[in-house]
Amino acid sequence: MKDVSFGQYYPADSFLHRLDPRVKLLFLIAFIVVIFVATNFYGLAVCAAVLIAIILFSRVPVGKVLRSVRGIVFLLLFTAALNVLFHKGDTVYYQKGIICISLEGIIFSVFLALRLVLLVLCSSMLTYTTTPVALTDGVESLLTPLKWIFVPVHALALIMSIALRFIPTLTEETERIKNAQLARGANFESRNLIKKIGAVIPILVPLLLSALRKADELGDAMEARCYTSGVKRTKYKKLTLTWRDLVAVLVCAALIAGVVLTRVFLGAPY
């Protein structure tokens, strides 16, 4: 049931878990940008090296980290297939109509696949090492400048944290309803697509009703506690920067420098 590996917090006590969520968020953004700045394999190798170090320092089991790639296997294969088949290159192995298989195409598709894997892995490292609450706090804090132009940052952060908070609740609810309908002989394993869609209704209707009911109850509970948006609030856990964050910033700077240098000075493999 709790097999939603993507975006699940893995509790541990590590360097990464203790980092300030804002720093982790900025690091992630920098990492994503850098992945796209890298135009050759040297650049990607630098990214990969940093990522591997991150994974090792996070104390999250490697198998669990790799499992987050499983969700995009189809996307990977699909883009790789498209690139292999249609990317025009010089060293052509096979050509017929618009289909063109070339060495450059194959290398390019490997390159793209690596990029995608790095992207997914680094984003899931953030969610593995950061609780949803810390993540929202970080987002809210980073978005503070938007408050000056009257964007309701706090409300947005609240929406986000409620959404995150209800993912496990609704997963559990789905499981409960699914079990109840299984006990009444529902068949979710049919291969017939139309039957498959029909089989979802006995789950979706009660789930939707339950979600609406929960939203109602939560709204009532918040109102009963006189919740209003936009009031200045103090935090239970104040975000403070420590030496760890400084280290992270330095690593980030080194990463950016490294990738830029490979791009400027190591023009070569593709």
Partner: peptide, 24 residues
Amino acid sequence: FQYPEYQLFAETVRDDVAFGFKNF
């Protein structure tokens, strides 16, 4: 199950009760 009323889904009582009967 607990709170079994939360598993109701059909448009009429008849359809809901018949769900298990038809399945089995």
